[in-house]
């Protein structure tokens, strides 16, 4: 079927918009793989992760970076984290499974989420309008991650630094989520 090729389309068509010095940008081409810890297998997984990535399974709320900086692990549940890395090829699960083997259960989540980066001076005040979590550095320092709800949507929020946040929300409702974030920035600018 030479004439039938499947082309990927990003959830938000590669959105980018500047609001003065504040930018809202879709982050594309990311792989996201959930890693679940088999019952009784925490130590095995930890040691596999240590061997492969030089870091251990992150506690909920925290993130861990592989020693080469290519994979960020987001601690989301007591027995589940997400691995976030550049998407290459069509099988992100394989990329993790090849390294960690059967020490974990893996599920592809790359297409489940739309990702936005909100960065700049208005980021925190814009998030104040939708995010119930306190983002003061003492409460939510760089590298923190949390799952919460904003404007009736489940959202994963990751702090890159005091002025820059990655926001992930479900792909199907990504336009609604984008509208919510856009409105927030507009309302405070």
């Amino acid at each position: 079927m030479p004439d039938l090729t499947l082309t990927a389309s990003p959830p938000l068509d590669g959105y980018h918009k500047q609001f003065g010095d504040t930018a809202l940008t879709e982050i594309g081409d990311q792989a996201l793989v959930s890693i679940a810890v088999p019952l009784g297998g925490a130590d095995a997984l930890d040691s596999a992760m240590t061997g492969a990535y030089g870091t251990t399974f992150p506690a909920p709320g925290s993130t861990a970076l592989s020693k080469d900086g290519s994979v960020r692990f987001l601690g989301l549940q007591p027995d589940q984290c997400f691995a976030l890395f550049e998407l290459a090829g069509n099988d992100p699960v394989e990329a993790i499974a090849n390294v960690l083997g059967d020490t974990g259960y893996y599920t592809d989540q790359s297409d489940s989420w739309a990702m936005l980066r909100l960065s700049g001076p208005l980021a925190v005040s814009a998030l104040e309008r939708i995010c119930p979590l306190g983002l003061a550095p003492a409460a939510f320092p760089q590298g923190s991650v949390a799952r919460t709800a904003m404007e009736h949507l489940g959202v994963i929020i990751l702090c890159e630094n005091e002025d820059s946040y990655v926001l992930m929300s479900a792909r199907s409702s990504a336009p609604s989520f984008l509208h919510a974030v856009e409105t927030s920035v507009e309302n405070v600018s």
Binding site: S34, A36, P38, D79, Q80, Y105, T107, D108, Q109, S110, D111, S112, W113, A170, R171, S172
Partner: peptide
């Protein structure tokens, strides 16, 4: 272990 893949 459970994870939603509705969106995936």
């Amino acid at each position: 272990h459970l994870i939603s893949v509705t969106e995936q």
